[in-house]
Design a protein around this nucleic acid. Structure first.
Lengths: 149, 149
DNA sequence: CTTATATACGGGCATATGCCCCTATATATC
DNA sequence: GATATATAGGGGCATATGCCCGTATATAAG
């Protein structure tokens, strides 16, 4: 009855944030059984991604388009749960590398099944072509030099 | 040197959140002089939008695709700054309507100038056509019934 | 070698986001 | 009118996000 459609704001940023909130709800709901939120799942997945060496915090924050201190905060629950560990770098005492534990690897793998359901649900709502196309556009947006400062 | 491009995650949600973080940085930077963040500016703008009656908190949260309690939290700094006030509804004692104060109206108007610069910067980076097209896609995403639960 | 500068990260702060549960009020059922 | 159900919001909690500033370490300049 009093169910209101969201108004399309002229602000590009506002629409982006609204969409992020909406979509995060879906993914968080589907991941709930795992005890991980979307953000935590993405973080684990990025840490686990194939690389020559485990990522430093600085590298991770760049890959994730995330402030370094935000990354630090977001790692805390994962550290507490024993899913990741920090390891001082051998060559640079300032640097800490982030590693998945065995427990973290297992949790990540198990949660991927739930994540896939969310992905499929999203794809179904938008159509696969549109979904992939939107993801590409968003990636370009993140990489755009013009938007960096 | 160690400047890393973000990796395109297969996760639609992760890319959406990354883009939201990146773009929010730009808008927040441009709005900084106003003392408002993007989120607060959007909130004020939504409150000020032309409507038959000032919005209730419930309505506002629907328009903004935002949890009711999130809206409550986000209103707090604006209340403290005297930019908005809550007004009990005459017909329903449960309901509170959100109104801009005179101070809020002035602040909103002044901040729109800064916001416009951010908009233009964003448009320049993406191209106006692509920017508008993306915004339309994101709006559809928010409105999609399939994604609601 | 000493000093200046740059980089990596943490601590403290404020806001942003959403969940669960609770209370108050309104509406529907009987 | 009494009771059941639905709705509007708030309180408390945990995480998410980024800023500023400080400390430790590394690298560059002299």
């Amino acid at each position: 009855m009093t169910d209101h459609l969201p108004f399309q704001s002229p602000c590009y940023c506002a629409e982006l944030r609204k969409a992020a909130r909406r979509v995060s709800l879906i993914y968080d709901a589907r991941l709930r059984a795992s005890g991980l939120r979307t953000s935590q799942f993405s973080l684990l997945a990025e840490i686990a991604r194939d690389r020559p060496a485990p990522p430093t915090m600085n590298e991770l924050s760049n890959y994730l388009v995330m402030d370094r201190s935000t990354l630090g905060h977001n790692l805390r629950p994962l550290l507490r749960k024993g899913l990741v560990v920090l390891q001082p770098d051998a060559n640079d005492a300032r640097t800490r590398r982030v590693l998945l534990t065995a427990k973290g690897t297992v949790k990540l793998k198990a949660t991927k099944k739930l994540w896939l359901k969310a992905q499929q649900e999203y794809e179904k709502a938008l159509g696969e072509g549109a979904a992939v196309s939107l993801r590409n556009t968003l990636y370009k947006l993140c990489s755009s030099k013009l938007l960096k400062r």
